[in-house]
Design a binder for these strands. Structure first.
Lengths: 341, 341
DNA sequence: CTGTTAGCGCGTTCAA
DNA sequence: TTGAACGCGCTAACAG
């Protein structure tokens, strides 16, 4: 049987309360007593039973998730995953509140961050927007000791504790590799459809994509980036125009959301041209397009994994505990028609 | 605050012990009383606090993992992950014992299964071998009410409760799609290196691979399968011979383990020929080969995920609890040089 | 068949 | 500065 606080107390010759004070770094213990207790702790190899501790404390973790109200399938999925987590709240001792804000709006995000801080939650998760005012708001949370996790889109250089999302440069590189190899040496232009160059994940994907094309497939050129703001309608218009303007287009990389519009534009041009298309995020729309052969590969981030990981990490940080690192790595899933889940 | 056993007891007008008996389906409660309690339970929306229950029970989960003693990196990794899990045993209330057996030996597996059963564990995980005597041994465990999870290689038609591994047919199909597209329409033979046609996962990968090649890339032919028994030395010999015999070889699909040997053979033939190579399992060897351009893509199953998932499921089954399905799906990870973790 | 009572391992008053 | 005693939600003797 593993040692308990009783064993420590007995071994150190003090009472339970004193052991507890040492364990929780509370004041009111003489240095000498503290040393005795600490000696006993690592002599016996004591590890605290978190479940019992939480039971005694009646601990719940009030968590705030700040999500954009974007109207695309990926964000809908992310919201759904958070709702799933809320359904598990009792079992996981969490109390999750969601704040919805307009997409791509740093000021709104700052307001939400400050509102969250006022609630003194055990942790905050947010889909970051790359702006200094956002960094400052995150710093204010950090100042209060509130753990912060960025979700899907990161905020480097900020005081966030963790990023639950994919390596977007690697994602862009992967897209370029697949596109280049699928194209098998052909020369010509490819188009890139992004949401907004304001969000870091989109910028990074483009960066990785361009770097690999330039280095390994120099015969493929990239047309000026189309910014669809992750809105299907806008994406459709932009893609349709590009298809009309470039008869020699070889392929397309859709690195943001709003693929419904992209797919509509691709379908509208009929089956005359065979474009190689790589897109991000597996949704009902991209899944169908993959099966129909309209899209050749989909790079995906598992929103469920991201949400569960963010929660695990916020809880662990709140308690100052370690996490299983490998479990928290968010993969870049690559889906072809053949390995759809 | 969510309701507790006390609330149920008060609301139903009975004692704690009676509530507990009803909750745990223990005998010695009149039907009428039971009904009263059950009514109170769903009137108040009671959900049991598993952590508190485990604390009171002093519950630990004795688990048995039966693993082959194969000398290849993937199995080494699997063993390492189980050791990691053993290191977390205290926190997770598990008590994991590993039984090592010779690889590809159904009789040894049956002996291990029966030995495990004698220990009356809370659950058993095994890397299955596709044989009826193994099915029978699994059935004997099921008979005793011991949950069984197959790991890496499944045993369909048996009484196992769950399979923690990838969809191997899909993996084979994916390999064929990548190989076919990377080859870009060229015609010629490709080789397949397997471990053994005795294990189901290898047979299924081959099946999926062959199906897609035949349907979508009919100009690519498959040479007779090489069985390397997942041993590097043997694999090297077989691959070297094939390379020597087929000057027109286009590519190779290594669907088992022992890739060290494959890579050695590929390196030995020098840079004269450019073969397209798809392999399974990301190890130090395949990772290096991917970076060197010797291997073009690696399909991987995350051994850590498989082990953690098996443990979660065994615990949940032992308690009759639900699991987060999406969390337990083992993905087919596709790694190119660009998205290595 | 049902109820009382004493823990599980830990945190937290309240006294001393 | 330290300790005794009670309670978190649940289970398990042991009575009745």
């Amino acid at each position: 049987m593993r040692p308990t606080v009783h064993d420590i107390a007995a071994s150190a010759g003090v009472s339970l309360a004193t052991v507890d004070r040492v364990l929780n770094r509370r004041p009111g213990v003489r240095a000498a007593t503290r040393a005795k207790v600490e000696a006993a702790i690592d002599r016996l190899g004591y590890v605290r039973d978190v479940a019992a501790a939480n039971l005694a404390k009646g601990r719940v973790y009030p968590l705030v998730f700040i999500l954009p109200d974007s109207n695309n399938s990926f964000m809908h999925g992310l919201h759904a995953e958070v709702r799933e987590a809320i359904a598990r709240a009792a079992a996981e001792r969490t109390d999750i509140r969601v704040i919805e804000i307009p997409a791509f709006d740093p000021a709104a995000l700052v307001v939400a961050l400050d509102a969250a801080r006022a609630e003194r939650p055990a942790g905050v998760a947010l889909v970051a927007i790359d702006a200094d005012e956002v960094r400052d708001a995150v710093a204010r949370l950090a100042e209060k000791g509130v753990p912060v996790v960025t979700l899907v889109s990161d905020l480097p250089g900020s005081r966030r504790d963790h990023y639950a999302g994919v390596d977007n440069i690697a994602a862009g590189r992967t897209a370029a590799s697949l596109l280049g190899r699928f194209l098998g040496g052909r020369a010509g232009p490819v188009a890139v459809l992004a949401g907004s160059m304001l969000v870091r994940d989109h910028r990074e994907r483009l960066e990785g994509f361009a770097a690999v094309l330039q280095a390994e497939f120099p015969d493929i050129t990239i047309l000026p980036v189309l910014e669809g703001r992750d809105e299907p309608q806008r994406a459709e218009t932009l893609v349709a125009a590009t298809l009309a303007a470039h008869a020699d287009l070889l392929g397309l990389y859709s690195l943001g959301a709003g693929n419904r519009g992209l797919i509509a534009a691709l379908k509208a041009q009929g089956g005359e041209r065979s474009l190689t298309v790589i897109a991000h995020e597996l949704t009902v729309h991209t899944r169908a397009a993959l099966q129909d052969g309209i899209i050749d590969a989909v790079l995906n981030q598992d929103a469920g994994h991201e949400v569960r990981s963010a929660i695990r990490i916020l809880k662990a940080k709140a308690d100052g505990l370690a996490v299983v690192e490998a479990q928290e790595r968010i993969r870049i899933d690559i889906f072809l028609r053949d390995n759809l889940p």
